[in-house]
Nucleic acid binder design. Structure first.
Lengths: 189, 189
DNA sequence: AGATGGCTGTACCGAACGGTACAGCCATCC
DNA sequence: GGATGGCTGTACCGTTCGGTACAGCCATCT
């Protein structure tokens, strides 16, 4: 029993890499068997729904990770500066070891968006909500997430990994400055 | 003779829509024949290199458009405010009628990135260079392009088309403000 | 030791894939 | 009114696709 869940979880980790590198359409079952080391029989035992089932498991796993490591800290107690810093640290280390690809962004661009529309929208709107909770500014939240996502694309497109943390750092100080200004408004406002 | 080029150009336009909606891997020759109204024979007459040749023609066409309508105005004479405004107007109207998908971003995320790496990198680095020329600030250029690209993803993911122009408008005023500050630095700096 | 059942590899399926070959249509030009 | 050649539809190629069927291995439990 424990063996089952452990190996399925391992498979999900390997699947995440494959889907990240090749996208949904571009991921073939052959590539999956190579990456996971599992035969088709095992795959369809763990994921009766086939490829879509596998992708959904990966999206769920990633979504849970962000919920736990990114969104919750944003809603925690403490100064906004600290909560924002926690988010940026988590996000930067996450994508640095994930080939600078956000799975949800990749799925949002292709035709697979319709198939996974609900879970994709949930991922981003939860992120926006948590950031709005931390900063009190919905527009700032949108600008921040957009900058991060765009920086991932730029870093991939220019094949310049350092561009992501550099852009993220500027977005962080901008967000912290504006959140601070909002918490302690100047007299003129 | 004129007939040839005209029909190939028409095919490229139809191809752009197909690749935008389905990505490179997700675009089948069957879908292409349906969208363009051309049989495989005609397609392989116009594009001897097959699917990759078709995609490359589309990327070239889009790249030329941006070079002409976006990058050149950024390098033109006149106040930075005006050049930036021209860029944002062109970009917003462009993507609004293109399903809010940047073809180069979509290709940068998938496995097709390697195949088209050079032309993808050229598209973004030319954009950054032109923006740096207009604002004198490389980091501002990166932040601006990243915000625009991220806003496209957010708008697609949340299925909220209005999010793109709203985010773009904030990025525009931010860029104009900072470019203005750079041109007329305050005494403290 | 024997039975159970979760798990696995392999062979295979029909469909669709990207790509090729080629006969012929039909507007142009002499 | 031929002859030319750009262009087109169609049949077909080998390969790979996602998915299924199933026999059997082997750790567990009695």
């Amino acid at each position: 029993m424990a063996r089952v869940q452990a190996e399925r979880a391992d498979a999900v980790l390997a699947l995440a890499t494959t889907f990240r590198l090749h996208g949904y359409e571009g991921t073939s079952l052959t590539a999956i068997t190579a990456q996971t080391g599992l035969g088709k029989g095992s795959l369809y035992h763990f994921f009766p729904g086939g490829k879509e089932d596998m992708a959904r498991a990966v999206l769920d796993e990633v979504g849970d990770w962000f919920r736990r490591e990114v969104y919750e800290p944003l809603r925690a107690d403490g100064p906004a500066d600290q909560r924002l810093a926690a988010m940026f640290t988590a996000v930067e280390t996450y994508f640095a070891s994930r080939h600078l690809v956000c799975l949800f962004a990749a799925f949002a661009l292709g035709q697979e968006r319709d198939r996974f529309a609900a879970v994709i929208a949930a991922y981003f709107s939860e992120w926006l909500d948590a950031l709005e909770t931390a900063t009190g500014d919905r527009e700032l939240a949108a600008d921040t997430v957009a900058t991060l996502q765009g920086a991932l694309i730029l870093a991939r497109a220019l094949n310049d990994p350092a561009l992501f943390p550099a852009t993220a750092a500027r977005a962080q100080s901008r967000a912290q400055t504006r959140a601070r200004a909002r918490a302690h408004p100047p007299l003129s406002s």
